[in-house]
Amino acid sequence: MPRQDQFGENINLKKFVKKLIITLAFGLVLLHPPASSQSVVYDILLAGRSVGELTITPPRSGDGADHFRVRGAIDTFLYDVVYVSENRFENGVLKTSMSSQEVNGKLKEKTNTVQTTGNYRVTFAEGNSAATETTQIPHPINYTVTSLYYREPLNMKQIYSDRYGKMCSVQKVATGAYEVMMPDGKKTLYHYSQGQCREVKSQIAGLNLIFRIRPDSVAR
């Protein structure tokens, strides 16, 4: 009998150890989220030369809202530019948006968008000047230029420009390719594969500007 009890105890001990290992392994999976929860990085190419990078922060959900953040840094011979855009959505509707641009360490422009009763209040500041209200947008905003880096604009006709504080048109030109007409009259082309933005093409002063996703940021 004692030997049988010991045998039974050994079996129970093995079962306990097995469950403990499984529990710890599951805990490690939770502590180390999949690659899709990591930042997505794009190389910025100007006229074929690398001049910086664009970092897309993983979407963050909290306080009943979804948060998006994009940060771009460009370093050229003459200019050091840092661009930041942040969105806050609730139930798919934009609540607040902030877009700022610094050149050589000094604020060049900043746009804030806040949803109020029945419309959006948009304020714009240039340099160190006081912010001025530029316009009011009456209809709900469900998609922004920042959103383009987080999801493909399926069936979208218009999106909101965080920087300019205006709506701009979207047109599907090929499978996974969308042309956005920016408020300044420039066209930007966004390419998607499996729902992920892989490349963005635009122009600055007649030079090709490309945002190309790094291989280690491509969704598997």
Rank of each mutant, 00 (worst) to 15 (best):
Leu154Cys: 06
Gln171Tyr: 06
Ser161Cys: 06
Glu86Trp: 06
Gly176Glu: 06
Val173Glu: 06
Arg151Trp: 00
Lys108Phe: 02
Leu148Asn: 01
Tyr120Gly: 01
Val145Lys: 03
Thr116Lys: 15
Leu54Val: 02
Thr123Ile: 13
Glu53Trp: 04
Glu179Leu: 12
Gln101Trp: 02
Asn104Lys: 09
Thr57Met: 14
Leu154Ser: 11
Glu179Met: 14
Ile159Val: 08
Thr144Met: 06
Val103Ile: 11
Gln101Ser: 05
Val93Met: 11
Tyr164Lys: 14
Arg88Val: 07
Asn91Phe: 04
Val70Arg: 01
Pro153Gly: 04
Asn112Tyr: 06
Gln136Asp: 04
Gln136Lys: 13
Glu179Ser: 13
Glu152Ala: 09
Glu152Gln: 15
Gly64Asn: 14
Asp63Phe: 09
Glu126Ala: 06
Tyr79Ile: 13
Asn119Trp: 06
Val84Thr: 09
Ile56Gly: 00
Met181Trp: 01
Val180Gly: 03
Asn104Asp: 07
Met182Asn: 08
Leu148Gln: 04
Thr111Ala: 03
Ser129Glu: 08
Ala131Gly: 11
Met98Phe: 09
Gln136Asn: 11
Tyr164Asp: 11
Val93Asn: 10
Glu53Ile: 07
Tyr160Pro: 00
Ser129Arg: 14
Ile137Ser: 03
Tyr160Ser: 02
Lys108Val: 03
Ala174Asn: 10
Leu154Met: 12
Ala125Phe: 01
Glu126Gln: 12
Lys157Gly: 05
Tyr164Cys: 07
Gln101Cys: 04
Ile74Met: 11
Phe89Ala: 00
Phe124Ala: 07
Tyr150Leu: 04
Phe89Tyr: 12
Arg60Gly: 13
Arg88Gly: 03
Gln171Cys: 07
Ser97Val: 00
Thr123Val: 15
Gly92Val: 09
Ser85Val: 03
Glu109Lys: 14
Pro59Trp: 01
Lys106Asp: 07
Met181Asp: 04
Pro153Met: 13
Asp162Trp: 00
Asp80Arg: 15
Ser161Gln: 04
Tyr164Thr: 04
Glu133Arg: 10
Glu102Ala: 13
Arg88His: 09
Val170Asn: 10
Cys168Asp: 01
Arg88Leu: 13
Ala177Val: 09
Thr57Lys: 15
Tyr150His: 04
Leu78Gln: 14
Ile141Tyr: 00
Ile74Asp: 01
Leu148Lys: 03
Met181Thr: 09
Tyr160Asp: 01
Ser147Phe: 08
Ser161Pro: 02
Cys168Ser: 12
Arg88Ile: 06
Asp63Gln: 15
